[in-house]
Design a protein around this nucleic acid. Structure first.
Lengths: 352, 352
DNA sequence: AAAGTAAATGTAATCGTTTACATGCTGCGT
DNA sequence: ACGCAGCATGTAAACGATTACATTTACTTT
C-alpha cells in the first residue's frame, strides 16, 4: 500500500490539492465519465448537465492531468522538431512558423538539436518511439538511424513524420521544400543576363541533398545560357561564414578570377564579400556576389546582398500544417513546394 | 470493460506489441518491482538478478512508458523555455547552451515562444502549472501573469523556475545574467578614451530591465569621464535593425552630430551603420559606432563592429545547470553573473 | 543457539484519466 | 400496447509504471 492518503489530514503534501476529475464529478453530481465527455465532446451530454459540469470545473479550478490522459489515450499533444543546428540563424524563422501553427492546433514543440552527434540522434529516435510525442518534423535530411545518403536501416518509428527543407530520398512521408534546382538556375541565369560568363559556384557540403539540387540548377542555368561548365570554378563550402572566407581567398589567389560568384548560402556570401573587401577590391564593381536563403542580414550587408528568398516562416507553417493533418487522421500531399524569389540588391552588377 | 485485449489474437493493434514491464519481469523470473528497481537503482538488486533483468530488457526491447512513469512519479523529464521571440538571432546561441546542458542531464526542451501575445503567455503558464514540465527557464523578464514592470499578481507556479538574461525584480528565483550596467559603462569609457565627448546612446525599449541597467552604465561612464549627460543624445530604439536605421536618420538630420554612437544592440548598430553609409559618410572616420551582444554578424559586418561580447552559450548552460540543480533537490546561487568582454574591431576610432 | 539486523525480493495499491459496455428512460412505429 | 431505437448517464476496467509495506533469507551478535 502506498500509505500517504490524499486527504488534508495527512499533512504531507505542500499546500492546496489540485482538483481531480472525481472532485468535479462529485460537485456536479455526475460520474467521472460524464465530466470526461463534457470536455471531450460537449454535444454528447445534455445542455443542463454540461452547464453544471462547467461550473464545477470553474469553481474547483480543475485541470486534467496530462500524464493520466496520455497514459490512457496514447496522445501527448507534443511534436518533436529535429534539426541539425539550433544556433544556425537560418532555422529560427522556420521554427517560428512551425511553432505558430503547432500552437494554434494545440500542440507543444520539443526541440531536438542534433549538433552533429550520433548519440543525440539515437536519443531522439528513442524519444520519438517511446511515445513521448505524437509526431515529428525532420529538418535534418534523413530518417532516424539512416545516414544522410540514405544508407542504413531506418529505425522504425510508429508516429507520423514530415520532412522539411531537406527532402529525404525514398522516405514515404510528406516533404515540404523549395525548388532548389530551379532557384539555383534562376540565379545563375540572372548573373549570366548581366553579362557574366565566368560564374563561380561555392557549394554546400558534399552529399547534401540541397547541394546536389542547387548544383544541378547551376549547371542547368549555364547550359541554358550556353556557358560551358568549368569544374575549376566550383569551390567547396559548407554553408558557414568561415567557408565563405576560405572560398574568397581561394578565388582571389587565382590569375583568372571569375567576374561573379554564386554562393549557395548567404553566410558564405557574406564571408566571401569580407575577403574580397579586405583584399582592396569592391563588390560588385570588381566582382559580383550572390547568395541563397535571404537571411535577415542579407538586406543589411554592405553591399546589400542579391539572393534567393526562401519563405522560411511559411515553410515552417506548411510542415506543421501537414503534420497536424496527419495527426488528425486526415491526409496531406506527399510533396509541397513553396515559391522562392530572386531578390536583387546591390551586390551584383554587370562585369566591368 | 475495455474490451480489446492486448494479445496478438485480437488483431486490432497495427503490428508488434511493445513490451511492458510485466513482460520483462516474467522473462527474467522476477516481479515488476524488481525490474523497476533494476532500472532506477541498480545497486538495490543483486548482481545476478540485475544481469537477468538487463538481459530480458534487451531481448524484449523494453522501453518504459513515459506517461505511466510520469503519472506515478510526478516527473516529466521536460523543461519549458519561455522566450519573447524565437526568430531573434540573439536567442539561438543561448538556446543551444540550454539544450546541451539539459540534454546531458536527461531533460528534453520545450520551447514557448511568446511572440508578444498574452494569450500565449497564459497558455504556457497553464502548461507549466498543469505539470507538463518539471521546471522552466524564463527569458522574458517577468513571471507568468506579471507584466514586465512587475505589476499584477504572478500566477503561482509550483515548479522550479530560473530567470535568464533579463532579471526578474522581486522574484525569489535564481537569476543568470551579465552585468549590463558595468558592460555599458565599459563601452562608454572606451569611446571616451578614444577622445569622444559627444557620445550618443541608442536605447532599448522603455521599461526594459536591460535598458534600465545599460542606461545607468552609460551615465556612470560619462560621469567617470567627466562628460555631462545630454538627454538630447539619447535616442529611442527597440533593439531591432529597423530602429537602428531610424536612429541613424534622426542623428544625421541634426546640425551638431555626435562623433560616436553607442547602440545597445548589435542589430541597431548594423542598421545605423547602414544609414550612415547611405548618407555618404563613413564609419568610423565620420562617426564611430559600437554595439552590444556580439552576435554572429558583428564580426563580419562592414566595418566589423566593436561591441560587448556576451557569453551566450555559457549563459544558457548556466541557467540549465541551475535549473537541473533545483530539480535534483540541490540548491543553487540566487544570482549568477557571467563576465562580458569589450571586443574592439573596426567600427570605432578616435574622432577626426 | 536465540535474537536481531540487513539485504533481496514480492505483493498489491495507487497515480488520474478514458471508454467499452450496461442501464434506464423517452418516444416512435406498428 | 409492445417492442425497439436512441439518447443520457453510470459502472468499472484498463492504461503501465512506482513504491510502501510485507516477507523471506542470510548473516551477525551476544
Amino acid at each position: 500500500m502506498d500509505g500517504h492518503g490524499r486527504k488534508a489530514g495527512s499533512g504531507r503534501r505542500p499546500a492546496q490539492q489540485v482538483a481531480r476529475i472525481h472532485d468535479v464529478a462529485k460537485l456536479a453530481n455526475v460520474s467521472t465519465a460524464t465530466v470526461s465527455r463534457a470536455l471531450a465532446s460537449p454535444d454528447r451530454v445534455s445542455a443542463e448537465t454540461l452547464a453544471r459540469v462547467l461550473n464545477a470545473i470553474a469553481s474547483t479550478g480543475y485541470v486534467p492531468n496530462p500524464a493520466a490522459r496520455s497514459l490512457r489515450s496514447h496522445k501527448t499533444g507534443m511534436v518533436l522538431v529535429v534539426l541539425p543546428d539550433l544556433a544556425n540563424t537560418f532555422f529560427s524563422r522556420i521554427l517560428r512558423g512551425v511553432e505558430e501553427t503547432l500552437f494554434e492546433a494545440g500542440y507543444g514543440m520539443i526541440i531536438g538539436d542534433l549538433d552533429g552527434s550520433p548519440v543525440k540522434e539515437a536519443h531522439f529516435a528513442a524519444f520519438a518511439s517511446a511515445g513521448r510525442v505524437d509526431g515529428a518534423i525532420l529538418l535534418n535530411g534523413h530518417l532516424f538511424g539512416q545516414s544522410r545518403e540514405g544508407k542504413g536501416m531506418p529505425v522504425a518509428i510508429n508516429i507520423p513524420l514530415v520532412a522539411l527543407c531537406e527532402a529525404i530520398p525514398n522516405a514515404d512521408i510528406p516533404q515540404i521544400e523549395i525548388d532548389n534546382r530551379l532557384s539555383a538556375e534562376t540565379m545563375t541565369r540572372y548573373l549570366a543576363s548581366l553579362g557574366h560568363r565566368r560564374i563561380a559556384y561555392v557549394s554546400g557540403p558534399a552529399g547534401n541533398v540541397l547541394e546536389r539540387e542547387r548544383m544541378r540548377g547551376y549547371r542547368d542555368g549555364l547550359e541554358a545560357e550556353q556557358i560551358a561548365f568549368d569544374a575549376g570554378l566550383v569551390i567547396g563550402g559548407d554553408y558557414t561564414v568561415e567557408s565563405g572566407v576560405a572560398a574568397g581567398r581561394d578565388l582571389l589567389a587565382r590569375e583568372a578570377r571569375p567576374t561573379a560568384v554564386f554562393c549557395t548560402s548567404d553566410e558564405m556570401a557574406i564571408g566571401l564579400m569580407r575577403t574580397v573587401h579586405s583584399h582592396g577590391l569592391r563588390v560588385p564593381r570588381d566582382m559580383s556576389v550572390a547568395g541563397f536563403d535571404d537571411i535577415e542580414f542579407a538586406a543589411v550587408a554592405e553591399p546589400a546582398l542579391t539572393t534567393i528568398h526562401q519563405p522560411r516562416r511559411q515553410l515552417g507553417q506548411a510542415a506543421a500544417t501537414a503534420l497536424v493533418s496527419l495527426l488528425s487522421g486526415r491526409t496531406t500531399p506527399r510533396s509541397i513546394r513553396l515559391e522562392t524569389s530572386l531578390v536583387i540588391r546591390e551586390s551584383t552588377a554587370p562585369p566591368l
